[in-house]
Amino acid sequence: MFQENTALDYNKLELFHLQYTDSLIELLTKIKRQKENDMLAVINEIDINKKYISGFEERKIDSFQTDRKMYSGIFSQHLKKLYKDLTEAIFTSNWDNVLYFHKKYAQEFYRSAVDESLLTSGSFPAYQYKDYSIERKLLGRLNIHGFKVRFICGYIIGTHEYELFKIFQSDDYFVFSIDEKKLYLFDKDLNKLDISENQSNQSAIIHQLKQKNELLENSMNERKRTLPVEVEEVLKDYLRNLENIDIMSKIFDFDEETNILRAMLNLNLNNN
Rank of each mutant, 00 (worst) to 15 (best):
L267Q: 05
L265I: 03
K81S: 10
S123C: 14
I43L: 09
K30G: 06
K30L: 14
R240C: 14
D62E: 15
I90C: 09
E232Y: 01
G158P: 00
N221F: 10
N37G: 02
F254S: 11
K188M: 07
G158F: 03
E230L: 12
Q65E: 14
T29I: 02
G122F: 01
L242Y: 07
L269I: 11
H160I: 02
F91S: 14
Y238W: 12
T66L: 11
G122T: 15
L119P: 05
L269E: 11
A41P: 03
K130R: 11
Y100M: 02
H102V: 00
I25W: 00
N244L: 07
K81N: 13
F124D: 09
F254T: 10
D194H: 01
E36R: 05
F124Y: 15
I167F: 03
N94K: 08
Y10V: 15
F174A: 06
S177F: 00
E88I: 03
S63C: 02
I156Y: 00
Y129T: 09
N268Y: 04
F101C: 02
N272M: 15
L79G: 00
L209C: 06
K81W: 10
R141T: 08
K12M: 03
L261M: 08
I206D: 08
L138F: 07
I152S: 06
E233N: 12
L86C: 03
P228N: 07
I195C: 12
Y129S: 04
S121G: 10
D172S: 15
N94S: 07
V42S: 05
L13A: 06
R141A: 04
R225Y: 01
F75I: 07
K236F: 13
R150V: 12
F64Q: 02
S200W: 10
L216D: 09
K104H: 06
H160M: 05
F252E: 09
L269Y: 01
I251D: 14
D237K: 14
T21C: 04
L99D: 14
M70V: 12
D179W: 06
K50P: 04
D194E: 05
L185K: 02
N272L: 13
